[in-house]
């Protein structure tokens, strides 16, 4: 155990850093995707609703490991060989980010949609009755209230996404799990290796959920 920490500790920490980097990149784009498709889901426009629903259904209906292989191997093959004339090459980090952003984004879209719909309809009506446009009412009245109710589910989704980065070890991104596999192969100490990796995830996620709780409490002031 001590030997793993002294010899491979630094390597595992760097790998943890890469896990966090991948998770943050994925989450960043997932938030954008989630906002866009979530709002499309509540607009009074049939076409937008349907597009948003299809996106969510497709992504949710495909296991992430399949999505990962599809983005990493499938997409370049599609552009370079099937269509031809392109030379698309994704690094594992790029493919991983796309994959997480899509996957998490779909769930995020549902959270955003549900959050907006949870705000009393009277709020939008009152805003519109004063002459505010739909966009202004959304930005100034509905979304701020929706975001408050979304925060706990948002944080939950962050945690799930952070853990999902481990799936991306299959496309060779040297994140924590992938690195740990190498450590195990070198040392044959599987029990110790995976125990250390487990604890590392546990610490990061605990810190994340604790700070989420604190944030939630702070936001509830004045309610």
């Amino acid at each position: 155990m001590i030997r793993i920490i002294t010899v491979y500790g630094g390597m595992l920490l760097i790998a943890l850093g890469r896990t966090l980097l991948l998770a943050l990149l994925g989450l960043f784009f997932a938030c954008i995707i989630g906002m866009i498709f979530g709002i499309m889901g509540v607009l009074k426009n049939r076409a937008c609703n349907i597009i948003a629903q299809i996106f969510v259904d497709v992504i949710r209906g495909v296991p992430m490991i399949v999505l990962a292989f599809f983005v990493y191997f499938g997409m370049p093959y599609f552009f370079n060989t099937i269509i031809g004339g392109f030379s698309v090459n994704l690094t594992a980090l790029q493919a991983g980010t796309i994959c997480l952003a899509l996957n998490c984004g779909a769930y995020m879209a549902e959270i955003v949609r549900a959050g907006i719909q949870s705000v009393d309809k009277g709020q939008m009506e009152a805003a519109r009755s004063l002459g505010l446009t739909y966009g202004m009412s959304m930005r100034k009245v509905v979304l701020p209230q929706a975001i408050r109710t979304m925060i706990p589910t948002f944080i939950n989704q962050f945690i799930i996404t952070l853990k999902d980065t481990s799936i991306l070890s299959v496309i060779g991104f040297p994140e924590l799990v992938n690195t740990a596999k190498n450590v195990q192969a070198n040392t044959f100490m599987s029990f110790q290796t995976w125990a250390i990796v487990g604890v590392m995830y546990l610490i990061v996620i605990t810190i994340l959920s604790r700070s989420a709780k604190m944030m939630e409490r702070r936001l509830n002031v004045g309610r």
Binding site: D120, G122, Q123, A126, R128, S129, L130, G131
Partner: peptide
């Protein structure tokens, strides 16, 4: 609507 104020049964304060 800027010229027509409305008051609702359930107040609907922001």
């Amino acid at each position: 609507r800027e010229n027509i104020g409305m008051v609702f049964q359930h107040f609907n304060l922001f």
